[in-house]
Every structure is written in structure tokens, then in C-alpha cells.
Amino acid sequence: MAIDKSKVVIEINDLKKYFPVKSSSFFGKNKMWVKANDGVSLKIYKGETVGLVGESGCGKSTLGRTILKLLEPTDGQILFNGNDITHMKQRHIRPMRTDMQIIFQDPYSSLDPKMTVGQIIGEALTEHNIYKKGQELEDYIISVMNKCGLDDYMIHRYPHQFSGGQRQRIGIARSLALNPDFIVCDEAVSALDVSIQSQVLNLLMDLKDDNDLTYLFISHDLSVVKHISDRIGVMYLGDLVELAPSNDIYVDPKHPYTKALLSAIPTSDVEKQKKRIILPGGIPSNVFPPSGCKFHTRCPLATEKCKQEVPEWREVAEDHFVSCHFYEKTKTMGN
């Protein structure tokens, strides 16, 4: 499926999402914020899969949900198919939701245990009046189920009767049934057994081709992301630090953090074994993030400049964006 660079499905500009830190007293204003997304800019083109990676707590899930307006953005801009939805009220966004969907990480809690598979998949269809209750609806649901690798008879069963992988397929079917343009896959395979992961990944890739979809694929697992993504973005502490086509990320990472992440992927290939770059310290708090470049506290290349100046986000090679003062030195890091 070709990527249509003339159509921008999602565009976010300097998107910020802050969460208030709960103060313990009954009165009193919040002065502290968890800066989950601290100014992220990104364009997602029609037909592509953008992978988003980073450690736990870097803000990738928050980003996915804020883009879909499941969380209200604190600042910045969100454009969906060219429409500015940043300040739209929920009741206006509601009808647009058929075009933008999300697949969740946890196959256990993302399905209502009291509803049958058919009801789960059909709920939104009747809510948006796409189908009325009847044979046509049932036929359509079964066709979607089959597309996702689920058998017909499962339509009357309940989620608790299925395995994790099958439940995830139900979740995928639920989103797919609405025929969306854009789907956020929020750690969609992270909770599955490794053998099932590849099955579901392949399903997602096939569905993308057959149904003209665009994905934002969020994961902490670099090896999974490589398989499915056209471009990959790396996040650290609420910021996007690098964005490049998949292959370039793996062959020529320009941000020291990316390189450290890549070095941590376990590989059994003795020849290709790189030296593991271990970053000192732990992730700083995102309520009080470090000054300048947020990564400077752990970066082997850090200097005084990194502590003072926030590095610019710029395109340093074809389609390769990075935010680092010393990105040229990354190549020699760890050798």
C-alpha cells in the first residue's frame, strides 16, 4: 500500500498535555504538573505506519490518546484530515470518532465482560446509526469477525471464554467495524504471548493494506516496532527526540538515547553483537524535568551547553529529524 504524502491524516504542532498533581489539602490550587507531553510535533501521512517508542512513562500512550481527544490537550494544535479539532467539544467530535479509532493494550479490561462479542462489535454501529438491528447488521459483524480471524460461532460468546490473543482480535474487530481512516495501536501486542504477537501483528498489517488504514503504532518493544513501521519516532520524558524512516533509525541512529535503546535489544547473532550502552541513573521526574536538553543527566555526550540550551528539533538528513546538539558524535558513542 502506497504512502500518500500529499494527504496528512494527523498533524500535531507543539502538542502539550499536562496532568495536575493532586494536592493533599481540600483547598489550594495546583502548582505542580506532570508534563506527560511537553511540545510534540508530528505529521502522519495517509497509508503509513508511524511507530512510537520509548520507555514507560515517556508519554507515548498519553500522546496517542490526546491525539484522539480522549484527553483534552493542554496546549498546541491537533489537525485531523485538515480539520482543527484541538478545541472541539466532545459532542462535536463524537460523530468523527468513526474515522479515528484506538486498539488497547489490555485484552482483559478493554472488553465489557457483560457483553457478547456480537454486542461489543455492534454497539458503535447501532449507536452511530450505521446499521439497524437485524440480519444485515449480523452479517456485517460476521464479515468483520472473519477478517480478523474470528469464527462465526463466536458472535454469541462472552469475552471470558476466549484467550488473550482472541480477545485482542475482538478489540481489533470492534475498531475495524467502523471503517476508520486512522487507528492508534496503543501497545496492542504488548500483553500477548510472543508467538501470538507475530500473528496479531501480521493481522494488523494485512488489515492495513486491505482497508486503506493509517496507523500510529505505540510500543516499548523496538523489535516489534521495526517489523511494522514505515517511520519511527523515539520519545523521552514527554519529548520527541528523533523521527526517521525505520531502517535509518536502526542503521544510523542520530540521538544518543536512540542508540542506547537499540543497544539494549537482545540478539543471538554473535557477529552483530554491539556493545551494550548502559545509561547512568534513572528517568528523571517529569514534574520537575531537567533543564535544557532533558536527556543531559544521563547522556554520555552531554556538556554544559546541553544543560543550558534546549536543542532544536530539525531535519538533519532526508526525512530524519533529531533534537540533539551533538548528533554527529552519536555514531562514535559506545565504541
Binding site: 490518546r65 480522549l70 472488553l111 458503535a124 470492534r174
Partner: peptide, 26 residues
């Protein structure tokens, strides 16, 4: 907090129906 409630919102289910169809039965 359960994800199926977030899912209901993501699917565009009205608040009223979220309460009726998801919260009350549980």
C-alpha cells in the same frame, strides 16, 4: 478507569448510553 469505558468513549458512545449499557449492568 477500566479500559472498556475509555473504549466506549473512543467509539463515540453517548454519556447516557455509557451509564445505561456499561456501568449499570456491572
Amino acid at each position: 478507569e477500566q479500559e472498556f469505558m475509555v473504549a466506549a468513549k473512543a467509539l463515540g458512545i453517548k454519556d447516557r448510553n455509557q451509564i445505561l449499557r456499561h456501568i449499570i449492568p456491572n
